[in-house]
Design a protein around this nucleic acid. Structure first.
Lengths: 229, 229
DNA sequence: CAACCACGCTTTGTTGACAATCCAGGCGCA
DNA sequence: TGCGCCTGGATTGTCAACAAAGCGTGGTTG
């Protein structure tokens, strides 16, 4: 599907398209990690020239999804289990902050939305043991809500704009998930309750413990040998 | 290894030069915030063509130092006091984590280096009330040491590669500083002691309080009207 | 037979020109 | 006189070609 026709948003430049497309391709695993990929090949892959492509590449590199050596070419970032655990440690403190600020600043309607979201998740888990969907998307929806609710623009940018893409990359790579949907959902509910009560400290504590639990889960799985690096 | 360190070694490309140069120019304030600056002007400013420049611009944008609207041009990021406070909140939790991990993972020699660094700072403060230098550079040196000591690559990349540049931008803009070198130095020493003893929890707590104090200081100064936005 | 050097090819970095888009100023009309 | 359209200029986005650097290959030599 060559997107030669650009019907609508003229505000979308080719470089932006390439950026989004490449980001998606990397996250979904269409481009293997460590794969040294040439520029011309990418250009032909979705008809554009090297100018916009290089700009997109630069942005991807700055975001940490690509590594590029001066004259050696670009390759998709190779990931390790240790780095994933590092990411979770960072997530722990940052989302803890997000939860605290969300508890302090979320509006009534936002809190209501959050609870509705959890109601939906509850139905999903109850109905069909919908582990797959719940973990893949629902989990992100919940955390997404809280992060945006923190009203901390920089935090939103760092988490939603950068970190989550990396996490998604890992998650898609070795499709490991917590494997504990009900417990996780319960934790989510507790966090939402703390936020609803405006108890920032509690929300922060619960969120940190929630993510730490997930991290421990992943760590033990990694040690068991489910490493797909 | 974060690619943000410095593309030093052999052949640094023109785009990298432009990137570093522009980053420095923005941080030092040679480019006013909110200033809409043309590409050709930048090109002539340090002889290079628009290709590499645009790549550098893209990376600057992705790093948050520039904002660019599709056909409207680029302008240096305009900053607000609120955003600075947000940054400090993020710093609080992230550097808290860094301090904890540094306490757990720093080597003997690194701890010794850290203490030597503080000795130097102590001399500076005692000798000449060297507030200016201590605050401008010494403070960063200390935090830099601890962050790298955390051995958390992602954390290093996010703090040293991104956040600190923004902080420097703010600091240079309204050259506000803590104005409490002795107290800050004492806090630094306590943190270093906690790290030396391997007490991660204490180091984290002290670091968070240290940064929170600095933040409160800035907040009150802002409210007093030292806002240069 | 192995190691080293030189050559050429491939890929990246850079350049200048072309085309699309937006902003400002001026003119016409109500 | 004020509003809106139009045109001109300038700026950004895009392109195709040029130059330099890295790497593999093949030949030569110890």
């Amino acid at each position: 599907m060559p997107q030669t026709a650009q019907p609508q948003s003229s505000s979308l430049t080719r470089a932006d398209e390439a950026f989004q497309y490449l980001q998606g391709a990397i996250i979904q695993g269409d481009l293997a990690p460590g794969e040294k990929i040439g520029e011309v090949e990418l250009c032909e892959r979705f008809n554009l020239t090297r100018g916009p492509l290089r700009e997109a590449l630069g942005r991807l590199e700055s975001r940490g999804l690509l590594v590029r050596k001066p004259h050696a070419g670009v390759k998709v970032v190779s990931i390790s289990g240790d780095e994933l655990l590092e990411l979770y440690q960072i997530r722990e403190v940052m989302e803890g902050l997000a939860a605290r600020q969300a508890a302090e600043r979320m509006s009534e309607s936002e809190v209501a939305d959050l609870h509705r979201l959890l109601d939906g998740h509850e139905r999903m888990v109850a109905e069909a043991d919908g582990q797959a969907y719940y973990q893949a998307e629902g989990d992100y929806d919940f955390h997404y809500c809280i992060v945006t609710g923190s009203r901390n623009n920089k935090l939103v940018q760092m988490l939603l704009g950068d970190l989550y893409y990396l996490l998604r990359l890992y998650r898609c790579r070795f499709s490991t998930a917590t494997g504990r949907p009900r417990k996780a959902l319960k934790e989510h509910r507790h966090i939402a309750d703390a936020i609803a009560q405006g108890d920032g400290e509690l929300a922060q504590f619960l969120m940190q413990r929630h993510i730490r639990t997930a991290r421990d889960n992943i760590e033990s799985r990694l040690q068991e040998g489910l490493i797909t690096l």
